[in-house]
Amino acid sequence: MSAIRVQGLTKSFTMKHKQPGLSGSIKGLFKPVVSEKVAVQPIDFTVEQGEVLAFLGPNGAGKSTTIKMLTGILHPSGGEADVLGYTPWRDRQRLAFHVGSVFGQKSQLWYHLPPVDTFELMGRIYEVPMNDFRKRRDDLVERFELGNYLHTPVRKLSLGERMRCEIAAALLHRPQIVFLDEPTIGLDVVVKAMIRDLIREMNREEGTTLFLTSHDAGDVEQLCKRVIVINHGQVILDDSVTNMKREYLTHKTIHLKLAVIPEQPLLLPGVEVVKQKGAGLKLSVNTVETSIETVLAYIVQNYRLEDVTIEDPSMEEVITHIYAKAGKEQGHESSG
């Protein structure tokens, strides 16, 4: 059964243009020049219940406009959407009971109060009966390991601790769909891994449908099975993450610090030295041609190594690749 079904959903805004100068401002008061800006072109997609979807795109691509339409805040200019059997913009309040949201850059916790107070408020707002609320809260506190700072004012929590509380707060009413917007932004590696674990667990155990937007390639790789990329209000990729990785996450970067300046050049198929400065090297590895393992084994065998780090391409790079490809294909279509 599908949790979200979108058909031909489109949104355009009217925008006022101001002419330059004071006379322009005055003219604008009486005779505003307006134009129409298409934020989302007719898009179609379906998200199955229990699916974990990455919804990606650069700033201004139409991501948040789409999410706003799916939560009922924005009325579309055309098309249809069905979220858990509701039409979001007609049944916003009723839908709200079944939807949760976590915005990495916005907090729903009360700053001066301990998380337990916000939890209670959330229970009330979502009309969860007291008994159910307590059971659910205790369960989440245990799973998210919040016991130690449940009674500490939020302002004294670290970002990682706060984020765990944010997610727990969004789950108290057992939402069927959770919108996650940059849930790991600003967190360190360890906390990121922990948050991802929790998100995965919630999906596995409760079958929660997850709709994730993130600029973090790790989030997408480790959490999602499917990815939709939009740009200029159009879906330019709708595929499995495995496929996307095979096609676009083909390069990794290795930073090497050797003990001595290498004498012999590094020659391996699919490996390119991007930069060399003394004993420091930056390599780009095409993982389709040569696996990271092979490259590392080769280096350890031939050089004396001091330090090594391996980097995934950033989501920006991957998406840039996708855009470039989509752009080319469109170019071919229009010229063909």
Binding site: D91, Q93, R94, E127, V128, D132, H173
Partner: peptide, 18 residues
């Protein structure tokens, strides 16, 4: 939009205690 349809008591918890 808040007054369309039934009142806000339509919750996942409704079938039971509510």
């Amino acid at each position: 939009n808040e007054r369309t349809g039934r009142s806000a008591s339509h919750t996942p918890w409704q079938d039971g205690e509510r």
